[in-house]
């Protein structure tokens, strides 16, 4: 099982992702609706991968990950951003943080689990 932390402010998208990832049966999913909630969640846990929405009210996905990277146990945890911002410069900026990949919105729910595994493999490589 892959322990996945999903941070997404849109409840509908959280539900769809939960269903889509639930089909494959390969993920144990914890969902948070904000960066603050996610930071509390990871204080005493280490997910295998973090799936982050980019644009959220309050703390953005990028800021959330920046905070997480300062925590020793999360310094190198793979992170995947789900973002509608697909400008190459934005993607490059995110990848520059290290151990980061990007999945473009809107995503295909039927291939989401494969996309996450592919992204994790890319980060590992």
């Amino acid at each position: 099982m892959i322990n996945l932390l999903h941070v997404e402010d849109d409840a509908d998208i959280r539900e769809i992702a939960m269903m889509a990832l639930g089909i494959s049966g390969e993920f144990a999913i914890i969902q948070c609706e904000s960066g603050d909630e996610a930071l509390s969640e990871v204080e005493n846990s280490t997910p295998d991968v973090i799936l982050l929405d980019m644009m959220m009210p309050g703390m953005t996905g990028l800021q959330t990950l920046q905070h997480m990277r300062k925590m020793p146990h999360l310094a190198e945890v793979p992170a995947i951003f789900m973002t509608a911002r697909t400008q190459q410069s934005d993607v490059d900026e995110l990848r520059a943080m290290g151990n980061v990949e990007v999945i473009t919105k809107p995503f295909d729910p039927m291939t989401l689990s494969d996309q996450i595994k592919e992204a994790m493999a890319k980060i590992d490589a």
Partner: peptide
Amino acid sequence: AMVSHELRSPLTSIKGSMGL
């Protein structure tokens, strides 16, 4: 950036639901 996010987020839900 705003339009991109505001339009694509609901589309993600619509397409995702229908896809499922």
